[in-house]
Design a protein around this nucleic acid. Structure first.
Lengths: 244, 244
DNA sequence: CGAGGTCTTGAAGACGATCAACAAACGTGG
DNA sequence: CCACGTTTGTTGATCGTCTTCAAGACCTCG
């Protein structure tokens, strides 16, 4: 089975056998976490970057009054803090949503790889800029979209990302996110998330129970979300020859 | 006078004379824009990245119904689309707020520089990840902060960034942003922006007229914003030795 | 089987949106 | 330099989405 990071980075550009080997044979420090554990806290100084191998995790920021904003969900193949390679001090925390297997790679190794393999350096850079694109998309959701559109959009996004990693089948995927967590991600209260989910169910667009989400009417869901996957850069059209 | 990009990147790590020269002598394509002009539109395919040399610009995304979300303000030294080096297709537009002088550098040149000067490659990468950090901070603002805190926070952020580039004196800086634009950046209506600004003025925290913002009580403003500049990575504490 | 977390429902209230109109500022040309 | 038109800022009134508070049902897991 191919390494999640290899699969993820090949969304950007095909890797040579040597480049794949470099990533796979790198000295990953593997660690298992339970559900709802803190992986990294805001203010920590990182000396390695952590990749999700399996499970769901999230980045979050806390307000002084204890309110929380989840800034992203991370799935297999996602680095939770690749930026810590350059920004040592964490500006956000990272927590697991489900039990997770994580792999950590020291910044020394990342630096070494990125100097010896410029294409891998670019692929890693690419990973961080796609992160940024997703942040921009979330901003428009939180800032300008109605609650219904916001939730629908998130469900579309996760489907697209999980599908690209081979983790969704038939418009259905594991979605182990509580309604409170959803609210924290979308800037909504738990109560309101609950009501909007019921609305989506009532319209026959989705069903969600037991941590599994099923999209029943993808076109309609994308319509209420005004979802366009381009910002995820999951496909080759957005690539350029010289980066290969 | 030092090149805005050099000044900006040296916030990350000191550059050698050669590295500075490479940036300064690079084949920038200089172009002047008037106020409220489009620089780049969503969907464009970029073959160069554009840097603000002078003036104010912003990134924005449009919703199908015409509503707009501004995702960042860009000042001298900021690339508006360095990520387009890796993500050819623009996922957002770029527009000027004031007349601007911009410098564009072709992706070929960026690639060449980043392969020949790994430290410059890291500095450019750093620029994009700081971008991401700012996006995360905006998300918590839009998602979880009250309108008052949101506006206050933005004013603090711009002061910190402009100050780092030598563009603020005495807590005062050029702020040529209309209330409509402010609303589009913060996810608020123009009317509400107006009222909150009056509240900030009434409390004696700021004054704003003729496109100039003056912060009268920085500690109090930071208090209502719960502002902590760490996420901007403007100072050396967050650096690591091996990246120098 | 029990306990804690999660989901659901109802009611009341707040923050901010929208609509509408007017005042002030700006800049452009006569 | 003033007149005028357009953009920006200001104010009031009403409305709606979403929040908060509170309580009960459900479910999952030890």
């Amino acid at each position: 089975m191919t390494h999640p990071l290899v699969r993820k980075l090949e969304l950007f550009a095909p890797l040579s056998d040597e480049e794949k080997r470099v990533l796979e044979k790198a000295p990953w420090r593997i660690r298992e976490y339970g559900a709802d554990e803190d992986v990294l806290s805001e203010g920590d100084r990182a000396s390695e970057s952590t990749l999700v191998l399996d499970g769901f995790s999230c980045r979050y920021k806390l307000l002084p009054d204890g309110r929380r904003q989840i800034t992203s969900f991370n799935i297999a193949g996602d680095f939770v803090d690749l930026h810590s390679f350059l920004l040592k001090q964490m500006d956000h925390g990272v927590a697991t949503l489900t039990p997770c297997r994580m792999g950590a790679l020291s910044h020394e190794v990342i630096r070494d790889i990125s100097e010896r393999y410029p294409r891998l350096a670019r692929a890693l850079w690419w990973d961080t800029v796609v992160d940024g694109s997703i942040f921009r998309q979330w901003m428009i959701g939180i800032g300008r979209r109605t609650a219904l559109g916001r939730i629908a959009h998130l469900l579309c996004e996760l489907h697209a990302r999980l599908h690209a990693m081979g983790l969704a089948t038939n418009g259905s995927y594991a979605f182990p996110v509580t309604q409170t967590e959803l609210g924290d991600a979308l800037g909504l209260s738990t109560v309101h998330v609950n009501r909007v989910l019921q609305e989506l169910r009532g319209k026959g667009l989705i069903s969600l129970r037991g941590g599994t989400l099923a999209i029943h009417d993808a076109p309609a869901l994308q319509e209420v979300a005004s979802f366009d996957a381009a910002y995820l850069y999951l496909h080759g059209e957005s690539r350029d020859e010289h980066t290969r």
